[in-house]
């Protein structure tokens, strides 16, 4: 029979493993390394589950462990490798028209810009842009201040926008879905 520890833990694993994998993947740019980081994060979590249940938000704790392991990994590896262009990505370029190519170029530039960020900047950008965590949540995960996270995120996004703007100006509007606060949705 499944005990409470196991049931709780299973639930968190199912809810967060894929999210944390996406975070780790974007941090280290390697599928197998990201999978190892997530597994190691959950091993640490499982072994200390009783100590932390009911204390800080479990999600904060899980994000923190995964980020620390990602930082450790990047320190050990010494540098961040650029994610190779995938087959699907290439196929989309071949199939698509001018707009599609422009969009692919933009994605490629963004990918390189994100890769060039420091590990901490990268983690702020990933948690805000992909996981849609609030500045407050990110500040808690990173033991930082809300104002610092907010200012860093702005600088990162501004830098990426400038880079995109100088390399492929002007560009047509892309999909407007998916972001919080979409003006046109009112």
């Amino acid at each position: 029979m499944m005990n409470n520890k196991t049931a709780d833990f299973d639930e968190y694993y199912r809810e967060f493993a894929k999210k944390l994998y996406a975070l780790a993947f974007k941090m280290v740019n390697n599928q197998h390394d990201a999978m190892d980081i997530v597994q190691e994060s959950f091993v640490k979590a499982y072994q200390n589950w009783d100590k932390f249940r009911g204390d800080a938000a479990v999600s904060t704790w899980l994000y923190k462990i995964t980020l620390n392991l990602s930082y450790d990994f990047l320190n050990r590896r010494g540098r961040v490798s650029i994610l190779p262009v995938t087959k699907d990505f290439e196929d989309r370029r071949i199939r698509g028209g001018e707009k599609e190519i422009m969009k692919s170029d933009m994605i490629d530039i963004i990918k390189k810009e994100v890769d060039s960020l420091t590990p901490k900047q990268k983690s702020i950008f990933i948690m805000k842009s992909y996981d849609e965590l609030t500045y407050k949540e990110i500040a808690k995960i990173m033991n930082s201040r809300v104002g610092t996270i907010k200012a860093s995120y702005f600088q990162i996004v501004q830098k990426i926008k400038k880079s995109v703007g100088t390399k492929i100006p002007p560009y047509p509007p892309l999909s407007k879905g998916g972001l919080r606060g979409d003006l046109e949705k009112g």
Partner: peptide, 30 residues
């Protein structure tokens, strides 16, 4: 412009392990 950049960023593809991987992964962790 900001909306375009952030939308494009969301389209960066990542390889996703299969469901079987996660099922086995949970048992492996425990």
């Amino acid at each position: 412009e900001y909306r375009n950049v952030l939308s494009a960023a969301k389209e960066i593809e990542i390889p996703v392990p299969s469901e079987d991987y996660w099922t086995a992964g949970l048992e492996e962790v425990k």
